[in-house]
Design a protein around this nucleic acid. Structure first.
Lengths: 235, 235
DNA sequence: CGGGAGATTGACTGATCTCAACCCGGGTGG
DNA sequence: CCACCCGGGTTGAGATCAGTCAATCTCCCG
C-alpha cells in the first residue's frame, strides 16, 4: 500500500497555494472535496481519454502527466505536460464539450478532482478566481500559438533543440545536470511532431557535436547556448 | 469620406449582442467608449503588431482580420481570422504580456477599442462576463490544439483540403457558391504552413480532380464530401 | 508604357519518412 | 536455469513529399 503524499492539512495547504486556487477564501476552500485525499495513478495509466465527458478540474498534486491528442493514423501528438500545481481538463469543463485530449501519467501521480459545477460557481462569485483562470487559459493560448508557428516553420532539428531546452526550463535538471523528466524516444518524437527514428538520429548527432550527453533516457545538456541558437527561439 | 456603418445606437446594439459583451448590464454598456464610434482600417492596414503593448480589447465590427505570427525567417503563420463580433488582443490584455501576434485587415474594417482596465474590472464584477470570456479563450484553445496536431501529422494536401472546408464553414459562400473570403495564394500557404508554390500546385490539382473551381482568388467548392474525406477531419 | 505584385510552371534538391533488420535488457514461464 | 518474448532503441537503404530557385506570365495601376 502506497502512502499518499497529500492528505488532510497538507493537501489543503498545497491546493490553497496552487496557481488556480490561490485566491479562494477559507470558506471556499472548505467546500472543495479534499477530505478523501488524492487519487493515485500508476505510471502509464490513463487519467481520462479524448472524447469522454469529464466535467471537472483535475489538479495534479504529484507526478508528471502528458496531455496529448491521437491523430488520424493513431499517432499521438503531445500538446503539453502537466506537473504539480497544474490543472487539466478545464477547457472541456468550461465549454461543456467532450475532452479533446487524453492524459496519461508518465510518472506515478496524485490528483484531486474538483467538480465542474463548483468551479463554475466560483468563476461567477469570485472575480479573482475568474481572473486567475483566465490567466491560465491565456498563457496556454500563447504557448499554443508559438507551438503552431514552430511546427509549421521550423525544421525537425530546430524543434528538437527547442524541446530539449524547454524541458529543462519546465522540469529543471537534477544534481548531475540531467533533465529531470524521462521520456522515451517515441514520446520525444510525439512532442516534436516527427518520426521516432528521426529523433534518434538527431539525438546522436547532437551527442556527436558535444551539445548533449545521453545515458539511456537521461539527457544532459552540455551546450545550452548552442542549442538555443540552433533552435532559433525568440527568447 | 467613408460613412461609418456603426455609430451611436447601431454600435451599441451590435456590441450588446456580441459574444464577448452579451452579458453586460445597461449600465456597464454605458461605460464602454462607444460614443466616438468605430475606428476605420483600410484593406491591408496593420491594426497592431507583434511585440507592442496593447492593453485592451479590439472588437471587430466589420471586415475580416488575419491574426498571424512572423517566424524567424520572416515568413508569416496565420493563426486565425477575426470577423465581426470577434475580439482580438485579449490574451495580451489578460496576461499583461506584449502582443504575441500581429493583426492586419484583409478587408476594410471597423473596430472598437475597449481599454484593458475596463475589461479587467468587468471580469471581477460580472461573473457572466467572466464566464463568457473564459468560454472564448477555451474555444480558441481547443482549436489551437487541433491545429497543432494537424500541422504536425497531416500532409500539406490534407491540410489544404481542411483549410478550404473550414473557410467555408467560417465565412460561408456567396450566392454563386464561391467562398466569401478572398485570400492570396501566399495567405493560403501561411494558413496551411507551406510554400506558396505548393498551394498553387495543389489547388490546380484539386481543380483537375473537379473538387473545386477557381476564378482568380475566388474558390468554389464542388465536392465538399470528397474534400472532407481527403482532409481526414474528425467531424 | 513601365513597374510591381501576385500567380504559375519546371527542374532540382534534400530533409524526413517508411520499411526492415537487428540489438539489448528485463521479465516470464516451462 | 535457460529459452523466448517484447518493448524500446538503433541503423541502413530507398522512396518521396515538399521546399527552393529561377524564369515567365498576367494583370492592374499610375
Amino acid at each position: 500500500m502506497e502512502k499518499k503524499q497529500y492528505t488532510g492539512y497538507n493537501l489543503r495547504e498545497f491546493i490553497s497555494t496552487s496557481t488556480v486556487f490561490k485566491h479562494l477564501t477559507e470558506e471556499e476552500l472548505d467546500h472543495l472535496p479534499l477530505e478523501q485525499g488524492t487519487d493515485s495513478y500508476k505510471k502509464s495509466s490513463l487519467i481520462y481519454e479524448e472524447g469522454v465527458r469529464i466535467n471537472g478540474f483535475f489538479i495534479v498534486c504529484k507526478g508528471i502527466i502528458k496531455i496529448f491528442k491521437t491523430g488520424f493514423d493513431g499517432k499521438d501528438q503531445i500538446i503539453r505536460f502537466a506537473k504539480p500545481g497544474d490543472v487539466m481538463g478545464f477547457r472541456s469543463t468550461i465549454t461543456g464539450e467532450l475532452a479533446c485530449t487524453s492524459t496519461k501519467a508518465i510518472e506515478e501521480a496524485e490528483i484531486v478532482y474538483v467538480p465542474g459545477e463548483m468551479v463554475k460557481n466560483l468563476v461567477k462569485s469570485n472575480g479573482n478566481f475568474a481572473m486567475d483562470l483566465l490567466q491560465i487559459a491565456c498563457m496556454e493560448l500563447g504557448e499554443a500559438n508559438d507551438y503552431i508557428t514552430d511546427i509549421a516553420q521550423k525544421t525537425v532539428r530546430e524543434r528538437l533543440a527547442e524541446v530539449i531546452i524547454q524541458l529543462k526550463w519546465t522540469f529543471d535538471i537534477d544534481k548531475d545536470n540531467f533533465l529531470q523528466i524521462s521520456l522515451t524516444r517515441e514520446e520525444l518524437a510525439n512532442i516534436v511532431g516527427t518520426a521516432t527514428e528521426s529523433v534518434i538520429r538527431l539525438l546522436s548527432e547532437f551527442k556527436q557535436d558535444k551539445l548533449i550527453e545521453i545515458h539511456g533516457r537521461r539527457i544532459k545538456i552540455l551546450e545550452e547556448a548552442k542549442l538555443i541558437k540552433m533552435s532559433n527561439m525568440h527568447y
